[in-house]
Design a binder for these strands. Structure first.
Length: 756
DNA sequence: GACTAGAAGCTTTTT
DNA sequence: GCTTCTAGTC
């Protein structure tokens, strides 16, 4: 092995058989240990085919595969390395027929599930306002995370009857549609292993070693799945994690899984990785001091041979706008001092905080990318096209059928759909199945019946394109036959971006075709394509950021590192969040989120807070976060409030005044828009200050389309928000909100201007 | 079927 | 406040 390891890392890598818990502190070389251990096992004679390595994200799996590729060469391809959900989907693809589904099952995302849930509530006669779908959805999700089916939930002492009833119906409807949700993937995979002993025996006989990354974030259902696969008193189960980085409790993660590993496996070998290779001594000490306030932890003492480094900067701003401005001023200073934009990352607790930063970045002409937000596969046009494919793959999928039956519009309204749904229920079949039958169901008007007939013919025609194997060709034919692109509605700009997304989907499909094995059947390929679309996130598809500022939530930051880290909104009520303040356990999780954020930094760490913040329409005073006070003074360099206040003082501010006409924000680094850009049809970017002959001065909040066709939402100082057509509005541009290249251009998907 | 008004929500979201 | 989604109207 050519890789250099420290003593503890070597211990973990060289550990032979039996359970192994690796408590890997932040930046301690966790991925290196897992990959090197796998390489060592293979070097020692274990077949790569007998190794299962599980991660939470596709990105983590891809990273490991890449590293192992360099260590093992071609044999790395034989490893079973994937996310929990993909592995479960693979198990189900083979064996789900034993549970009464077929292998072409659909995987529903949250939107699909929400639609189905509403149907369940309606059928159970539950008033949506009383039953609050969100609460029931949460209860079902939680049950699945705990590995409880409806009957098991019913046996729970405090389960609510409504929840059990809806859950039971929800499962029945999913099954009728041959569909599963994310929670089902894990739960049903565990069930098929538990109930079908030969299936389980097959996996156990094969799997010699199971490795799990980020073990602190596994939920109960995942734990149960693991216990099935890695059975016995001394299974070859290696889990790697850090209890201090467990931040997904609210999604069902059980921190107890890692805390209790030694109780579960009394023979377990425990290795602590405590040398940090990432951060300066100062950053590590500051972060360690914060997390030391938690009681429910194993306790590690990280140390580093890295230099002491600069103190942590704690900056206080007047309000949220000033905070964002201060951030941009500091970014500018750092860039002036030779730093690159991609060295800097901005973290915040909630997505809502990104807006102020985005606006400040635009004003400061600072290119940026937001990680997260709307995902590619969740965009309307992409979901529409995938819904067609899903109906082709799985005709029982009524949720997808309902989505496409009138998209593009073909005169099949809600009445018709309800009638079809009813007829399908009576005939005990899916709507697609019903459509295949002739004559069409009774009770439909002649015109409606004809339209439904035409739609059924369309589906039949599409089905014939499945004879070839190429997914891309199916999508192309689908686009032609439905005239989907041509019939897109909405404003010019929106249409353009949708068409770009459709082209992107075609590119993804072509790429998928190229990566696919020869001799595969069309159906299998389509099923695999849909599975990938359901289980792969945007982040996994994102290439390395170009030279841009990166913005993301603290949760998204886990597993990453940056030379310079900014954390914003270090205030009670923001971080820790308002909703956890009375809950000791949840508060500890917030503290872990803080620890994760701080330990992403290699060289410099900045913590920002605002004394006042505009939230839910009101300005409130914000006391500093307790986490700030938990950092020992010796590691901190405070920065005082900027001299010039940014927002007018509270008392002089009229309640209806959205901007403040003398707001100094408006004077900040503006430039007149050049006349040419209007002639070229340049659009008015959000943030641009304009004057209207009757409404007065305002700020462009949103724009659609270009040039004279452009539709604008403008927030006026005196009259509030107005929608305008630029051609008629006779606007005078007072100052440009932006003075550089358009950071939104390039790729539609991470485009900050309309991404949320 | 398109447009608008009203209501609800508003923490994080690996899959 | 602002956004998003749904229900109701023309």
């Amino acid at each position: 092995m050519v890789v250099e390891l420290n003593e503890q890392q070597r211990e973990a890598v060289m550990h032979g058989n039996g359970p192994l818990l690796v408590l890997a502190g932040a930046g301690s070389g966790k991925t290196r240990v897992i990959t090197t251990r796998i390489a060592a096992l293979v070097a020692d004679g274990t077949s790569p085919r007998d190794v299962l390595a599980l991660t939470f994200t596709n990105k983590a799996a891809a990273e490991m595969r890449h590293r192992l590729g360099t260590m093992l060469g071609g044999r790395a391809g034989e490893l079973w390395m994937s996310t929990f959900h993909s592995a479960a989907a693979q198990i189900l693809r083979r064996h789900i027929h034993r549970l009464g589904y077929t292998s072409s099952f659909s995987i529903f995302d949250e939107q699909d599930c929400a639609k189905l849930l509403r149907q369940c509530l309606a059928e159970e006669g539950i008033d949506e306002r009383a039953g609050t779908p969100a609460a029931i959805a949460w209860a079902i999700d939680r049950a699945k995370n705990e590995g409880l089916d409806p009957e098991a939930l019913a046996r729970r002492p405090f389960s609510r009857d409504v929840e059990v009833r809806v859950y039971r119906r929800y499962q029945r409807l999913l099954k009728r549609q041959n569909a599963v949700d994310f929670g089902d993937l894990i739960m049903l995979a565990a069930r098929v292993l538990r109930e079908e002993s030969q299936v389980l025996a097959g996996y156990r006989a094969r799997l010699r070693h199971v490795l799990v990354d980020e073990y602190q974030d596994t939920n109960r259902a995942q734990y149960l799945l693991l216990r099935l696969l890695a059975d016995g008193e001394r299974p070859n189960l290696c889990v790697v994690g850090d209890d201090d980085q467990s931040i997904y409790g609210w999604r069902g993660a059980e921190i107890r899984n890692i805390l209790d590993f030694e109780r579960d496996f009394p023979d377990a070998k425990v290795v602590r990785l405590e040398q940090n290779y990432r951060s300066t001594k100062t950053i590590l000490a500051a972060a360690g001091a914060v997390v030391a306030n938690n009681s429910d932890r194993k306790g590690k003492t990280l140390w580093t041979a890295n230099p002491q480094g600069a103190p942590v900067t704690v900056a206080v701003a007047e309000d949220d706008l000033a905070e964002a401005r201060l951030v941009m001023a500091e970014v500018r200073r750092l860039v002036g001092a030779g730093r690159r934009l991609h060295d800097i990352v901005i973290f915040y607790r909630t997505n809502a905080q990104s807006r102020a930063v985005e606006e400040a970045a635009m004003r400061a002409a600072m290119p940026y990318t937001i990680v997260g937000g709307i995902r590619f596969y969740e965009r309307k046009e992409i979901k529409d096209l995938l819904a067609y494919l899903r109906v082709l793959a799985n005709p029982a999928d009524d949720v997808s059928l309902a989505r496409i039956i009138n998209t593009p519009a073909r005169g099949i309204g809600d009445q018709t759909v309800s009638a079809l749904r009813l007829a399908a229920r009576e005939a005990d079949c899916s709507i697609t199945e019903l459509l295949r039958r002739t004559p069409p169901p009774p009770g439909l008007a002649a015109t409606s019946a004809a339209r439904v007939r035409a739609f059924a013919d369309l589906l039949d025609a599409l089905r014939t394109t499945l004879d070839g194997t190429s997914v891309a060709i199916v999508v192309e034919r689908l686009l032609e036959m439905t005239a989907y692109r041509e019939r897109l509605d909405g404003a010019e700009g929106e249409r353009t971006s949708r068409i770009e997304n459709i082209d992107e989907l075609l590119a993804v499909a072509r790429d998928f075709d190229e990566r696919s094995p020869l001799g595969e059947t069309a159906r299998t390929r389509l099923e695999r394509f849909l599975e990938e679309a359901a289980l792969v996130s945007d982040w996994d598809r994102t290439a390395e950021a170009r030279d841009r500022l990166t913005l993301m939530t603290l949760h998204t930051s886990k597993g990453l590192e940056f030379p310079i880290v900014f954390i914003l909104g270090m205030e009670e009520g923001i971080f820790p969040h308002q909703r956890v303040l009375g809950d000791a356990q949840a508060l500890e999780e917030e503290r872990r989120v803080c620890y994760v954020g701080m330990t992403r930094a290699r060289a410099e760490l900045y913590l920002f807070r605002a004394e006042r913040r505009l939230r839910f329409g009101t300005i409130s005073e914000r006391p500093p976060s307790r986490f700030l006070e938990e950092i020992p003074e010796q590691y901190v360099k405070p920065v005082s409030t900027p001299a010039k206040p940014f927002r007018r003082p509270l008392e002089r501010r009229a309640p209806s005044d959205p901007i403040g006409s003398s707001d100094p924000v408006m004077d900040y680094s503006y430039r007149q828009e050049s006349p040419e850009s209007f002639a070229e049809g340049g659009s008015l970017l959000p943030g641009t200050k304009v004057r209207h002959p009757t409404f007065g001065v305002g700020i462009v909040r949103r724009s659609e389309g270009r040039g004279e066709q452009e539709k604008l939402m403008v927030q006026f100082v005196r009259v509030g928000m107005k929608k305008l057509i630029r051609r008629f509005a006779n606007l005078e541009i007072v100052s440009d909100g932006f003075d550089g290249g358009n950071p939104a251009s390039g790729h539609g998907r991470a485009a900050p201007f309309y991404s949320r």
